[in-house]
Structure formats: C-alpha cells, structure tokens
Design a protein around this nucleic acid. Structure first.
Length: 464
RNA sequence: GUCCCCAUCGUCUAGAGGCCUAGGACACCUCCCUUUCACGGAGGCGACCGGGGUUCGAAUCCCCGUGGGGACGCCA
C-alpha cells in the first residue's frame, strides 16, 4: 500500500516551529517510503481563519522546501461532501440531532465541574430503543452529534507512544455539525483522512484525546483506520510552553533573524528524533534515515544555541556567490548599499567562517561599504598617540605597495621591525581605524578587500 | 476534578536485560593554533526522579509514588 501522509494546519496564525516539525516529519515519512505528502488547510473555523494565515503557512512551507504532492486542499471547499456524509450518518442512526441550547450545555458543564466530574454531554437527546425523547423545541436550531459507543475501549498502537487505550465511557457524543450546519473539526478530519486515503496520521500529541473519537467515527463510516503517530510538543528555550503570548514565532522569523533553512531543518530533524550519534545531515540523508521508531515520546526543549551552531556550520558550507543576493538585501535593510568595489562574494568569503547568523555576517561587513563609527573604548586602548608616527610611516610604505595581502603584510612587518614593536601593536590600531572595532579577520586581508584608496583615506582621516 | 501521556548530563539525545566505568552533540571550562576576535584542534566538567519488585544480572521489564505536560468547546 502506498504511504500517504498529510499536514493539516488551521490557518489561524503563522507556521510556528512545532507545526514546521510536524510537517517535516510527515513529509520525510512520505519521502522515505516513496509515498505522497498532502497539504490540507483546516479552515472550518470561519471566524478565526484568514487568507493571510494561509499565505503565511504556504510561505513557511516554501521557505523550508517542504513540497507537497497534493493540495493545498481547503475544507471549506468540501462542505457538500461533509454534508452528504452527515446525512448518511443521520440516515444510518450513527448521528442524531440535539436540541440543547448553549446555555443548557454551559449549565450542565458547570454542575459536573462542581461535582468534580469530567464535563461531558449527558446524552439527553441521544436516541435509544424504548427511550422517549421530548418534542424538539421549535426555537432551537439543533446541532448534530455523533452517537459514540458507550462501552468498551478504543485501543490503538501509536507509532510514537505505543499502545494507548481509552474507555468509551470517557467519551461523549461530540458535535459534528453546528447549528448553522457547518461541520466541525473532528468530523472533517475523519472524512478527509478517510477519503484522501491517509495511511499514517502524524500530528501533535494534543490530538491524542481526539483520536479515539475519530477512530469511532471511522468505524461508523466503515472506513479503514490509519496508523497514528503523535509527536510531543516543543517547549521554548526556557522550558515553558510555546504560545502566542510566550515565545511562539513564525518560522519566517528565523529567515528574518538570519538563519538558513538548511540549519532550521537539520535542527528540527534532531529535535525529538535521532539516528545514533548523527548530528549534521542533509535533508536527503534525513529522508533516507527517517523512521517513526526513533522519535522520542517526551517533550523537547528548544535550544537556540544549538540551532546557531548548526547555522554557523551551514553558513560555512554555503557558496558565497549564492549568499550575495541575500546579504545584499540584508545590508540594504541596514541602509547600506553594496558597491562593486570590494566584491561582496569575496567579503562574504572572508567572514562566513566567523559568524553564527547571516545578520551577524551582515553587521560585521557593513564597514566595507560605509565608513564605520569608531568604537571609543577600542580607539582609546589601541590608537594611542605614541603609535601615530608609526602609522604615518606605514602610510608611506603602503602608498607604494603592490596591493596584495603579502605585500601589505611586508609593509606592516617593516614598520614593526623598524620601531622594534610587536605586530599587534600596529595591527590593532589599523583594525580600529579601518573597521571601527578591535576584532576582524587578518588585517592584511581586510585591507586588500577594502582597497588602497579607501584604506589610506580612513587612516589619514584619523591621523590628520 | 476526571482521563490520557511523559520522565538519562543545564539542553537535544544514544541506549530494545549483560557491549554502560552510561556514548555523542550544544553550552560551559582549560590548553593548543594565532596578528585581535572568531574558526579549527585536543582535553575537562556533567545525567539514568524516588521506592519496591522480576532476574544470576535492570538506565532498559512490572508496580507504586513523585514531578511535569496534555485533553475535557457549536476551536482546531
């Protein structure tokens, strides 16, 4: 049987890190087994779903490179089909009308909670043999409920958590269609997973409690039950639950913050899943290795430091020419226009082994394209009066130098020897004058890229 | 409250009864490299939640406890 997995977000916000990992695992599982990965937008909550959120999810998927074989399907466009199935269930007696008002339900819940009971529908409109139902009140438009089995257990072998068993007594007759006729989440999922031929449902473990209800409905429809794999949640860096109020950010924020999708993907792959001691691997390798057996059933705390480490790794690996477009855009955001004088790819080459994010890279190289503001503390420490004559002497040598890093190095060596100094004594003030700060790559290489005119101009503007 | 789930270094994890004196990675510390800062290299620190079983033998299996999380919507 061909593997078919799906990612089914509701468009009520951006694609966050947890959703991204769920999507990644579903995607990888399909790839691994040569199956299909389907994107389904669960937009039946009309009040909260927005087209912007749909776009945000699509953008996130695209940035990560999670492509889908089918979809996106929109549940709102499948209303007719849901209604047909509901009618079928009504006809077959596996669903029924319930005329409870919201107020009545609220009151019921309150009493149960006060009594220390689990709040659930008491089945007052559930038809039974020999049970006499009251006449339907005219003023209340009914909802439709699923007639859940009342005894026995629903048991499934969760591909991540192992066997899970929930008693039907714990479940109540859930609403599958609202008073206005629109079907609800648990029902749409059932119909869609069934009709889309989903073989493995890989989703967040906040759905564990929905699973027995869905299995019961699947049974009522005579559908095949897919396998389920419930992924544990991802906690924030501080170990706290991620929420809109606390720490949850769009995956696109990582783009914004200077992370490469390769790094985010690799990081997410290792969060809750492992393949022995492997830490760094491509998505192709991941798809070959991926399995549900090695997913941790416990929640995982996000670790930005490790993500940064991976990001640094992928930045080092990245082709500098390839990064030019991205870095140009990031520089523009800082108000820095790239010129062709120092070749940007060459500048990136010089810096990409030293940074953890593309933003860091961008900030570090800005001085190549605009005069840097000089760090006062660094200037005070290194750019002392006694060194200025030495620098003036260096300027003289530099003017005649062939502009290669070796020649520049020789020039510095020459003044260093002549004045009986250590190399850093001259290199440090040069750094401060040229880059604004006391840390940079080899100063001669910086000077090569900066160009003779610019180097002399920056030095002389300080000396004069 | 009820039900469900989870539990190895600070963090992500390896571990399917003897391979465990518990391995790797991030972070941290030390040293090396060095023209500063990084990068890189070599070391170091650091964990099986507690208690009972089962077994010749348990991080691994079972039970109880404790702690954490999730779910209990005409949200998804």
């Amino acid at each position: 049987m061909i593997v078919r997995t799906r990612f089914a977000p509701s468009p009520t916000g951006f694609l966050h890190i947890g959703g991204a990992r769920t999507a990644l695992f579903s995607w990888a599982y399909a790839k691994k087994h040569g199956g299909d990965f389907i994107l389904r937008i669960e937009d039946t909550d009309v009040a909260r779903s927005t087209p912007e959120a749909v776009q945000a999810i699509l953008d996130g998927m695209h940035w990560l490179g999670l492509d889908y074989n089918e979809g996106p399907f929109y549940q709102m466009q499948r209303m007719d089909r849901y209604k047909q199935v509901i009618q079928k269930m009504l006809d077959e007696g596996t669903a029924y009308h319930c005329y409870c008002s919201r107020e009545e339900l609220d009151a019921l819940r309150e009493t149960q909670t006060q009594q220390g009971l689990k709040p659930r529908y008491d089945g007052r409109w559930r038809p039974e043999v020999d049970k006499v139902l009251p006449p339907p009140p005219q003023e209340i438009p009914p909802v439709i409920r699923f007639k859940n089995p009342q005894s026995g257990n629903v048991v499934w072998n969760d591909l991540v958590k192992g066997e899970i068993s929930i008693a039907n007594q714990e479940l109540d007759d859930l609403i599958i269609a609202r008073a206005d006729g629109t079907p609800t989440y648990n029902f749409c999922v059932v119909v869609d997973d069934w009709e889309m031929g989903i073989t493995q449902v890989i989703r967040g473990d906040d759905h564990v409690n929905n699973t027995p209800r869905q299995i019961n409905m699947l049974h009522a429809l005579g559908a095949t039950i897919p396998q389920y794999a419930h992924l544990s949640m991802i906690l924030g860096d501080d170990g706290q639950k991620l929420s809109k109020r606390h720490g949850a950010v769009s995956v696109m924020q990582y783009d914004e913050d200077g992370y490469l999708p390769e790094a985010v993907l690799n990081y997410l792959a290792r969060l809750g899943w492992s393949h022995g001691d492997e830490e760094v691997f491509s998505m192709q390798q991941f798809c070959e290795w991926f399995d549900l057996d090695h997913i941790t059933p416990s929640a995982a705390q996000f670790n930005t430091d490790k993500l940064k480490w991976l990001n640094a790794h992928y930045i080092k690996l990245a082709d500098s020419e390839y990064l030019v477009g991205d870095i140009t855009a990031r520089l523009a955001k800082l108000g820095v226009g790239v010129t062709d004088k120092p070749n940007l790819a060459a500048v990136i080459d010089l810096y990409k082994e030293r940074v953890h994010t593309l933003n860091e890279l961008t900030e570090n190289i800005a001085y190549f394209y605009q005069k840097p503001a000089m760090d006062a503390a660094a200037a005070e420490k290194h750019l002392t009066d006694d060194i200025k004559p030495v620098l003036a002497a260096l300027v003289g040598l530099l003017k005649d130098a062939d502009w290669q890093s070796e020649q520049i190095h020789h020039a510095i060596e020459a003044v260093v020897t002549q004045h009986q100094l250590k190399f850093p004594k001259v290199a440090m003030p040069l750094r401060v004058m040229l880059t604004g700060i006391a840390q940079s790559p080899s100063i001669d290489q910086v000077m090569v890229l900066l160009g003779k005119d610019e180097v002399l101009a920056r030095i002389e503007s300080v000396l004069n």
